[in-house]
Amino acid sequence: MATVELTFSALPAHVRTARLVATAIARRTGVEESLLDEVRLAVGEACSRAVEAHRAHCPGEPIRIELRDDSGRFEVTVSDHAPSDEIHLEQPLDLGTLSDSFMTGFGLAVITGLADDVEVFPTAKGTDIRMSWPATNGIPAS
């Protein structure tokens, strides 16, 4: 198992960097080219969500991403330290209730629609979003 960890300040400009790193490692791990756009978008959504949550609750805390090559899967975990305030994804679409500043539920809906496997779970400090895609080869351990 090879792991890459990345921590970054809760600034929107860093989300693009996180996307680029995740896409590069996904490619090297053997994720199919046709899935790389999905990896890029899903990781970007998870990081955007974390950045917005940290800016609202704990702007000084860094956000952590863990990228793993794990038994034929490329797995990404985005961890935040902010209280969870997600809306339910099952809510019907109502234009009048949607905010144009940030649509948390839409972010999660996009992640769920793109990642091959997604888990969202609360931790002692905040929320972890773990997602994974099939990968054909591993990153060399050394």
Partner: peptide, 14 residues
């Protein structure tokens, strides 16, 4: 590239 933040801006414009 477009993410949900961009979608939110388009919805706000609408």
């Amino acid at each position: 590239f477009l993410d949900s933040t961009g979608l939110g801006v388009l919805v706000g414009g609408l």
